[in-house]
Design a protein around this nucleic acid. Structure first.
Lengths: 225, 225
DNA sequence: ACACAAGCGGAGCGGTTCTCTCCATTTGGA
DNA sequence: TCCAAATGGAGAGAACCGCTCCGCTTGTGT
């Protein structure tokens, strides 16, 4: 549909790329709520140009995030390649959260059905079986408690992702502390706490987080004036 | 300011109450984003009436949530009354989350500075010292790991509150599972997992959650047509 | 019973936001 | 050279929201 019907004029193709790059950046920085006008502005093209290439916003999201979600699936696969079942699971949880911290839109696409289309949905469905493998392997090895299921892990991803979002401005790494406690809770037997990965959030940091958190709407200038 | 200047006419006072009740209900059900028009409609009065009693939305929120936040503080105090330090801390975390599940606005008021005014802020500041007492008591008793601080607990509240919000429609109790894992992670030494408080989220439940989650904006009819 | 201040409702103003269309103009390439 | 392809960006259209204003109603003190 893109490359087959007609080779697309040279400048048109270049603009298409620019739009995709700009969209990727803005979605990552601000989340999926950014305006197509914002994207057009950052891409240095007119809105009309964006709409000629992508019928609507959802199509653009769909096109862009298929690959991002695939990256998450790849991380899960990497986890399976790690010999130690516990390390493998932790790798997935940590690394996929790192992706979400860097890309705000990714979280929304992963956790909501209201964004993206078929391609995104398919990509999403790819992940679950791999995570199940990761989890049951760990459980069979006796390093993760038996009473949890994949969906518990999804909820945990959501929980920690939210912490990361909340504290993003104040300290982009505190979420690791919360994750660590959760991970310690996942073990069936643990004699000592795992050492914390960094310092806690201080008072100023919490205040900063509270100020930046909208609870619903955010206020900020995406890029330029 | 309310009862002193002038006794307020009988019907006026009755309407004031209606507005407060309606606002409390709507803020609880939908969060702080509801329109004052919605509140007026549910109260069965005109918007003008609302604005005559409450200069603006923030004042209304401030007036209403001072008491709700005090309830959270009360819960923390109840926790201190419990003899066992661990049970006391758990009581606070669980009960305050239960309040947040029932009242969506409460979470926003607790975690954001952009809502409410001085009264809400004061009430919020009341809580922290009590929680610190709760936490250090548990740590001194050796039932909570030493490396966490109050703000870690705040972040955990946020994390679990978000899970509760996410899964609200599908299963209003699954958040307890996530909380339980987190709690198990808080212990300095644990030989066996604490039994889960309920069944996990099934596939349909997750789908339902995904559909209801906006990530930013929600869509729904507050009450009437 | 009456008069008038207090209170009322809700249309609508002024503002913002966001998606998407339209068309006069520019530009690539056979 | 010439025209289909591509462009840009003003602005239509459709929400939403906080708040005001004013003609009408109602409680209340005398």
């Amino acid at each position: 549909m893109t490359t087959l019907d007609r080779p697309l004029r040279k400048d048109a193709e270049r603009n298409r790329q620019r739009v995709m790059v700009a969209a990727r950046e803005l979605f990552a920085e601000e989340g999926l709520d950014v305006t197509l006008d914002d994207i057009a502005r950052r891409a240095g093209v007119g809105v009309g140009t964006v709409y000629r290439r992508f019928p609507d916003k959802e199509q653009l999201i769909d096109a862009l995030f298929e690959e991002r979600i695939a990256a998450v699936a790849a991380i899960a696969n990497d986890g399976l390649d790690i010999a130690d079942p516990w390390t493998g699971l932790v790798h997935f949880l940590e690394a996929s959260l790192e992706l979400q911290v860097v890309d705000r839109g990714l979280k929304q696409v992963l956790l909501s059905t209201t964004h993206g289309q078929a391609r995104v949905e398919d990509a999403r469905d790819t992940i679950e079986p791999i995570v199940i493998a990761l989890l049951t392997r760990a459980q069979e090895a006796g390093v993760v408690r038996d009473d949890i299921v994949v969906h518990d892990l999804v909820l945990m991803q959501h929980a920690i992702g939210e912490v990361a979002d909340y504290t993003r401005e104040a300290d982009p790494d505190v979420w690791r502390r919360t994750l660590l406690v959760l991970l310690d809770g996942l073990r069936p037997d643990r004699r000592r706490p795992t050492p914390m990965p960094g310092p806690p959030l201080d008072a100023a940091g919490l205040l900063c987080s509270m100020q930046h958190w909208g609870g619903s709407r955010r206020r900020s200038s995406p890029s330029g004036a």
